[in-house]
């Protein structure tokens, strides 16, 4: 018989090995989860380091409010459950602030905002979709109805790739379900690979993300097409995702982000990584 007393040291070792993911005390160190596959917001360099707009921005903001920030790579699929399970303290992964996400987590103020659109191959029949380049707000019902009516004949029976659990997937499911076949991918990089391979006819993501796609190998064969969607279920731009219980951390990061926006740091970083300014209105 194994005595319970013999098991106790083993249990103690197991507990000691377990890492406390976060402390509730006053914030000194923040662990931030990012996907590392959503260039140029966040990506892996060949030496394995995480780089990108959000990494630069986090380092800047953390310095302003005296925090040590550490990034961990985490699959997009499950990034919110991981936050609520306490595996890390914050999410910076090009995540848009939406009503649906606000039901389970909290967000700081937005730090970037860019519209959503389609990417297609240049020789595709979808290369010149109706309303290309026209801004359409999902809040404007008349404009949205018109856009859907214009797009429906072109998209009928086509396959569209989109990353799972994104505002773009919501957009397709809400407005184009039944018109097109929607195929969901774990990462945006994978729907790009399938767009280039010809398995999907178009991919839907944010224009800022596609900016980096078009500059990658093979990207010169692709182009953006269709309207630039904003508003509504697409949310109010991307913010730092936080647990609802961490109001103190939210206050700190909001302060840092507001400062970074006010003195033009966000604009500078945006120009560095996106070549365009996607800083949100203050």
């Amino acid at each position: 018989m194994v005595k319970i007393s013999r098991l106790l040291p083993a249990l103690a070792v197991a507990v000691a090995l377990a890492v406390p993911a976060a402390q509730a005390k006053d914030w000194k160190k923040v662990v931030i989860a990012t996907e590392g596959a959503y260039a140029p917001y966040n990506m892996h360099a060949p030496d394995g380091k995480l780089i990108g707009f959000e990494i630069d921005l986090a380092l800047d903001v953390c310095k302003r409010v005296n925090l040590t920030c550490e990034f961990v790579a985490q699959d997009w699929n499950g990034i919110i459950p991981g936050l609520n399970a306490g595996k890390y303290d914050a999410i910076m992964s090009g995540m848009s602030i939406t009503a649906k996400r606000l039901e389970v987590i909290d967000f700081t103020r937005p730090y970037s905002n860019s519209p959503t659109t389609f990417a297609v191959m240049k020789e595709s029949p979808l290369a010149a979709m109706p309303d290309s380049g026209v801004r359409v707000s999902l809040d404007d019902k008349a404009a949205m109805d018109k856009a859907i009516k214009d797009l429906a004949p072109a998209l009928k029976g086509k396959v569209i790739g989109v990353q799972v659990s994104t505002i773009q997937a919501d957009l397709l499911n809400t407005y184009f379900k039944g018109v097109t076949e929607i195929r969901t991918y774990p990462t945006t990089e994978e729907h790009d690979l399938d767009l280039q391979a010809g398995r999907v006819d178009a991919a839907l993501a944010s224009t800022s993300y596609f900016a980096s796609t078009l500059s990658k190998p093979g990207g010169d064969q692709m182009k953006l097409s269709g309207p630039l969607f904003t508003g509504g279920l697409l949310g109010k731009g991307t913010g730092i995702g936080l647990r609802k219980s961490d109001a103190d951390l939210k206050a700190l990061l909001d302060k840092g982000l507001n400062e970074a926006l006010a003195d033009g740091t966000i604009k500078t970083l945006s120009l560095k990584w996106f070549k365009v300014d996607i800083s949100p209105p203050s």
């Binding site: 377990a18 890492v19 993911a21 402390q23 509730a24 595996k87």
Partner: peptide, 19 residues
């Protein structure tokens, strides 16, 4: 993570625990 956090709370620990 959920189980370990619950156990840690029972033992009077704060915050989140996980593997």
């Amino acid at each position: 993570s959920q189980v370990m956090t619950a156990v840690a709370r029972m033992l009077g620990q704060q915050g989140f625990w996980g593997l």
